[in-house]
Design a protein around this nucleic acid. Sequence first.
DNA 1: TATTGTTATACTCTATAACTATA
DNA 2: TATAGTTATAGAGTATAACAATA
Lengths: 160, 160
Amino acid sequence: MAQPSPARTGPAAADRARLAGDAVRRIMHVASAIRHHQDVEVADLGLTPAVARALHELDPDRPLPARDLAERLRCDRSNVTALVDRLEQAGLVERRPDPADRRQRTLVVTGDGRRVRERVHRALSDSRLLAGLTDTELATLRDLVWKISDGGCPERCGAE
Amino acid sequence: MAQPSPARTGPAAADRARLAGDAVRRIMHVASAIRHHQDVEVADLGLTPAVARALHELDPDRPLPARDLAERLRCDRSNVTALVDRLEQAGLVERRPDPADRRQRTLVVTGDGRRVRERVHRALSDSRLLAGLTDTELATLRDLVWKISDGGCPERCGAE
DNA sequence: TATTGTTATACTCTATAACTATA
DNA sequence: TATAGTTATAGAGTATAACAATA
């Protein structure tokens, strides 16, 4: 059982695997804590996490068809109906018929929706957990995470 | 409107806030992708994500009461019943009466459970998304995430 | 009285399949 | 035929409240 390449099976690779596994589990731990904070803040706005995320993915300046929102949320079209129902009931979004293709319903963010969406954005950007990092560490972290997130999406990941 | 302290409200603080918000959103993006991979791998073992996580939190060498598992999972006791039901049906965990306190049921990981838990651990440590990082970058990321995760838990976060 | 595990129940989130009205 | 939105439905996950057995 000769080891083909130290880079793939040697002690260095084992060290790296341990390190990477550790990093992954820690990232998920941190993400879970962040999510917890976000959910609480978003609940203060009277929104469930999924509804808030739907509002966040909408572009106030460029109305989208529901199909595109489903794509951005990476969920099935059928779910978007219920999410938009709740946004519409809250007066944050309007469904408008699209004259060009009468099958489509265009999702328009209202004035209220615009304001709430801004607050949702702040909630989803809350960085209290990063308060312990120096400016340099924060910049380094951002760069590393950025590097990972390129091409690291579940399915297709366009529309950035 | 004099600005009290540049460190808190000046342009540097604004830069940092932008940077931190960016980092947070990227972390959540990455975590979502990692979760997707984990869920797929864990499904290959015939487990749902929550059941897999429950098995993962159990200590094969130190049986726990259900109460403690709920605490580790940070969920209500009532949920643990259904999760352990499924683990028991799959033959991965056994409920044993505790002679010392007959209210309690001790959760014992079986031989099969031990083996499956090992595979779950590997699934939850899968680091393919970090493959693009150099060894140095990986170590830096691990350290930074580690620093954040200390004291960065939703509620209490002992029993590490 | 307080606690452990359980049950009953409800809500959120998500997926699949079938329907409708368009194209 | 294919697509956009919807509806119906089901399952997973999680929470609250109430209960029985035990402390």
